[in-house]
Amino acid sequence: MSRITELYESAIKPLGNPECRSVLGNEKYVFAGGVVAAFECKLTLRTSDIKRAFSTASIVKRKAPTRLGTPYDELNGAPIFGLLAHSKSLGNDQGWHRLYDAVQKYAAETSDHPRELLDVICVADTATIALGKHVLVGKGLSEQELQELNEIGEQSAVAAMYVVQDEAKRHVDLDFSGAILAGLVYDLTYRMAFDDPTIRPWADHLSGLGFYGGIGIPLYCSEEVLSDEVRQRLKHDGASKDHWSKWNRNLP
């Protein structure tokens, strides 16, 4: 069990528990309700570190109260959980492909629900890989979304996709140096802004800089990861087109 999991477990014990009082009296802890984000940090990232980070994220997020009522709340577990590293040692692959393959592998193996997944991975000299969810449930799906469902042989689904943001030159006249760190800053700001409307203007400003977006492979799961109430509303009213709505189809 990682140190951050131990800290989290101690922080969520009832205050009336004598063991809790003893532990808090001897060490410094932060209560779970005050944690916005937590990170596993490495100098050189190895495959075992990626697996451990996914496992720790699942353990920590399972201990948080399950939120209900909107697609955003039901597909996101607190706290935001990330993996940060200066560099990586994943074999001879000098790009991001082996890193991405490991992320896909352990995302599928270690989590039972999209809300338990690692939210963002940033390797400073390689890429930022951020998680997004796409709700393919209810009325108002686009032709492209319907085609996507047809290709996987389903009438509805929830897709979780890790998107790669690197510094490869995509346009002759644009310099993408710094895009990896910018992608991390934007992703964290975007996630926090869903729960804190006061920073949404800053998140919108960062979005307008145009560095974000990338490629990824969806991981599909059943619409049943959403509650009956949320699915019924999506089927009756459809999703919201407001990109800050917790009923939008595209979510962090």
Rank of each mutant, 00 (worst) to 15 (best):
M1G: 09
S2G: 04
I4R: 05
E9F: 03
K13S: 07
L15A: 15
G16S: 15
P18N: 11
S22G: 11
G25H: 08
G25I: 07
K28D: 09
V30M: 10
G34T: 07
A38Q: 12
A38N: 13
F39K: 00
F39L: 04
K42Y: 11
T47P: 02
T47G: 03
K51G: 14
R52T: 05
F54K: 08
T56R: 11
S58Y: 07
K61P: 10
K63L: 15
G69C: 12
P71D: 00
Y72L: 15
D73M: 14
E74N: 10
G82I: 09
L83E: 05
S89H: 10
S89Q: 13
G91C: 14
R98F: 05
D101R: 14
A102I: 03
Q104I: 15
Q104Y: 14
A107K: 00
T110Q: 14
S111K: 03
L117S: 07
V120I: 15
I129D: 09
I129L: 12
A130W: 14
K133L: 01
V135A: 05
L136W: 02
L136A: 02
G138P: 00
L141G: 12
Q144F: 11
E145M: 00
Q147N: 15
Q147G: 13
E151H: 05
I152R: 11
S156V: 04
S156T: 05
A159N: 01
A159P: 06
A160F: 03
A160Q: 05
Y162P: 05
V163L: 02
K169T: 01
K169M: 01
K169A: 02
R170T: 09
H171F: 08
V172G: 06
D173A: 06
F176S: 09
S177P: 04
S177L: 12
G178S: 02
G178R: 04
I180A: 04
I180V: 13
L181A: 13
G183F: 06
V185C: 09
D187E: 04
L188R: 01
M192K: 07
D195S: 10
D196V: 06
P197Y: 01
I199W: 02
P201V: 07
W202V: 15
H205V: 04
L206I: 07
L206G: 04
S207K: 10
L209D: 05
G210Q: 08
I215D: 00
G216N: 07
Y220H: 09
S222G: 03
E223N: 03
E224T: 08
L226A: 08
S227D: 06
D228R: 13
R231F: 00
R233H: 06
H236Q: 15
D237K: 15
G238D: 09
S240G: 06
K241L: 00
D242N: 15
W247F: 13
N248Q: 02
L251I: 14
P252A: 05
P252E: 01
